[in-house]
């Protein structure tokens, strides 16, 4: 009884330390249990809310598991054709340069069918944020091989494991775009532990700042899990991701703005 009374004392508005962002709608996420899409949606919403950007944000969602992102985020959102989100976002930003524009794309969308749009938007240095969810598989269509599927990894279209001689090598899009002069901030993050989530959120926050300053394309890869596609429990999938995905897709910053730009940013923050 003592405990129950104690709890009542704690659960008060003034003691609130975490609640989901008000930019998350009441509609339950359509994602499978444990999927990193939900966590990534959450932190994007948190950053936009904390930066007070909701009225000035236009999101672009892809074809794939997150095609219904507009059901879950209380923002103006355009749903793009498969792979074309960077082209759609290019026009939005060029026509409304004062808005915060981001795309949200999976590995099939961004690294296969949308390679051209991704490379060229980054090469032009479009002032947009591209959030790239890489779980090494096509989740929506039922677990087929993606360009990012690891060597030897099984999928419904590589049932004996990815044979790189026959199917090609897993594609490191993030390394590719980091080489382009148009990108200003390229980083690889994850959202499977509290520390990782906090870091990923910080990265999104940085990207918001860089976009405000018109510094070029920000590209954030989130290495994520697909428990259903990988046929694992969520906890197992995160462990597998750490042991296998991180070995090939190393987390960390690939490109950060030059010192002077970063200094300018720090000054502005103060």
């Amino acid at each position: 009884m003592k405990t129950a009374e104690g709890l009542k004392d704690i659960i008060k508005p003034e003691n609130l330390v975490y609640r989901k962002s008000s930019l998350i709608t009441d509609k339950p996420f359509s994602y499978c249990p444990g999927c990193g899409h939900g966590t990534t949606h959450r932190i994007i919403a948190e950053v936009i809310e904390e930066e007070n950007l909701a009225e000035n944000t236009i999101g672009v969602c892809p074809v794939g598991c997150s095609v219904l992102m507009y059901d879950f985020l209380d923002l103006d959102i355009q749903q793009a054709a498969h792979g074309r989100a960077p082209a759609v976002a290019t026009a939005i930003k060029r026509l409304m340069p004062e808005k915060f524009v981001f795309t949200y794309q999976g590995d099939g969308d961004l690294a296969a069918i949308g390679t051209s749009e991704t490379i060229h938007a980054c090469n032009r240095g479009e002032n947009i944020l591209i959030v790239f969810i890489n779980n090494g598989i096509y989740g929506m269509t039922g677990g087929q091989m993606a360009p990012t599927t690891l060597e030897g990894m099984k999928s419904s279209t590589s049932p004996y494991g990815r044979d790189v001689k026959m199917m090609g090598n897993p594609l490191k899009m993030t390394e590719l775009v980091a080489m382009l002069p148009g990108t200003c901030y390229v980083t690889r993050q994850s959202v499977h532990t509290p520390a990782a989530v906090r870091k990923a959120k910080k990265a999104i926050k940085k990207a918001v700042g860089y976009q405000k300053k018109g510094m070029g394309t920000c590209f954030i890869e989130i290495v994520s899990n697909c428990p259903s596609g990988w046929k694992m429990t969520p906890v197992e999938s995160n462990k597998w991701m750490e042991e296998n995905m991180f070995a090939y897709y190393k987390p960390g910053d690939l490109k950060v703005p030059a010192e002077s730009d970063a200094d300018a940013e720090n000054k502005n923050e103060q």
Partner: peptide, 19 residues
Amino acid sequence: GCTNCATVCPDGVITVYRM
């Protein structure tokens, strides 16, 4: 009230209080 649980929750179903 460390918020670790809420931070990793993909569905945002956990609210945390601390005092």
